[in-house]
């Protein structure tokens, strides 16, 4: 179901995890959105990049987290380069939601465009989730319709998301069609008057 992500949560508790780290440039091998999961966190995930020998201590290589679908991380997750490949790589590997205290802005917008749920929670809550996910196999549900993270104790943790981004994910909308449908006439009108006001633009 759209907007519901359930599964094991993996803690990657670093601040400022940048998009270069999420998908290093040289892992973007084709002019395509597909198959990027192999390069996800490549510099951390592989001890030997060329041979693809795994670094066993890296969180996603540990047995408990190999099937994780939720990633818990530190503040400013997804900062740096605007490459949407970061989102495609996470999704391709199997991550449906990322929980962090804050996100890089372009990354967050890219998430919404691709149905990946970027959940902003208070630092204490993120820390509590991460500690629990470190201690045992923690299964969480990110419910975008209810705007809650469920699974840590009896009380769900509420979060908020920009309404438009939430709706886009929930309904799987095509943003281009939506804009032209809702605002086609306004766009035309704006352009006409703008051409008169700023003929050089």
């Amino acid at each position: 179901m759209r907007g519901i992500v359930s599964g094991v949560a993996a803690p990657l508790m670093r601040r400022n995890v940048d998009t270069d780290a999420i998908i290093p440039s040289r892992e973007m091998k084709r002019v395509s959105r597909e198959g990027l999961g192999e390069g996800l966190f490549a510099n951390w995930r592989y001890k030997d990049l060329a041979a693809r020998e795994e670094a066993l201590e890296f969180v996603l290589n540990r047995a408990r987290y190999r099937q994780a679908s939720i990633l818990i991380s530190g503040g400013n997750f997804g900062c740096g380069s605007s490459r949407e490949h970061a989102v495609w790589a996470l999704a391709d590997w199997g991550i449906g939601a990322v929980i962090a205290p804050s996100f890089g802005e372009i990354f967050q917008a890219n998430c919404a465009q691709n149905g990946l749920v970027a959940v902003e929670l208070a630092k204490e809550h993120v820390a509590a989730l991460a500690a629990e996910a470190e201690r045992r196999e923690l299964r969480l549900t990110v419910d975008l319709a209810a705007c809650e993270v469920q699974g840590l104790g009896a009380t769900p943790l509420p979060f908020s998301m920009k309404p438009r981004e939430r709706e886009m994910i929930l309904k799987g909308l095509d943003p281009i069609a939506l804009t032209l449908e809702e605002h086609g006439a306004a766009i035309e009108a704006f352009q006409k008057s703008d051409r008169a006001a700023r003929p050089w633009a």
Binding site: S82, I106, A109, Q113, N114, K162, P175, I176, T179
Partner: peptide
């Protein structure tokens, strides 16, 4: 400002972008 690839598609197709 910097955008993602999907947003670039939107900007190219509509001459507009949605932004907060």
């Amino acid at each position: 400002w910097g955008i993602g690839t999907t947003q670039a598609e939107h900007a190219l197709a509509t001459g507009t972008l949605r932004a907060e």
